[in-house]
Amino acid sequence: MSRAWAIFLARKECPMTDAPPFHVVFAIFDRITQLDFTGPAQFLCRMPGAKVHVAAATLDPVMTDAGFAIVPTISFDDCPQGDLLCVPGGLGVPAALAATPLIDFVRRQGAAAQWVTSVCTGAFILGRAGLLQGKRATTHWGYTGQLPLVGAIYEPARTVFDGNVITAGGVTSGIDFALSVIAHLHGEDVARSIQLNFEYDPAPPYAGGTPGTSPEPIVTMMRERFYDARAAEMEAALNATA
Score class of each variant (00 low, 15 high):
F105A: 05
Q146G: 01
A56E: 14
V87G: 08
A191F: 08
P204T: 09
V93E: 01
D201L: 11
E199K: 02
D60K: 12
L238C: 07
L102A: 10
L126A: 06
C120R: 00
V25M: 08
D77C: 03
L196V: 13
Q42V: 09
F124G: 05
G89H: 06
T172L: 01
P21F: 12
V93N: 03
A203H: 13
A113S: 15
E188T: 15
P202L: 06
P101R: 07
T38L: 13
R158K: 09
F177A: 11
I125T: 09
D83T: 14
A99E: 14
A152F: 07
V52F: 04
F26H: 10
V62R: 02
R11L: 11
F177C: 13
L238H: 07
P88F: 09
V119I: 13
A27Y: 02
R107N: 02
L149F: 00
R225F: 03
R225E: 13
F161K: 03
V106W: 00
A168Q: 02
F177Q: 14
V119S: 02
G209Q: 03
T138C: 05
T241C: 07
D65S: 04
V52Y: 07
G208I: 10
D77R: 13
T33L: 01
P48Q: 10
V190F: 10
V87W: 05
T172D: 01
R46P: 00
A111R: 11
V25H: 04
D60Y: 08
T58I: 07
T33R: 00
H184P: 02
V25Y: 06
I28Y: 07
C120V: 05
G151Y: 00
H186C: 14
M221Y: 12
R46M: 11
L196R: 09
P148I: 05
G110T: 09
I28D: 10
M234Y: 04
A27G: 11
L97F: 08
G151P: 05
F161W: 15
P204Q: 03
P94T: 04
A69V: 13
R107V: 02
L196M: 15
G145E: 12
F105E: 09
A6R: 13
H23L: 08
M1N: 10
I194H: 04
P48E: 12
T38I: 14
R31W: 08
F37P: 01
F68S: 10
E13P: 00
D77T: 15
M63H: 05
V52L: 14
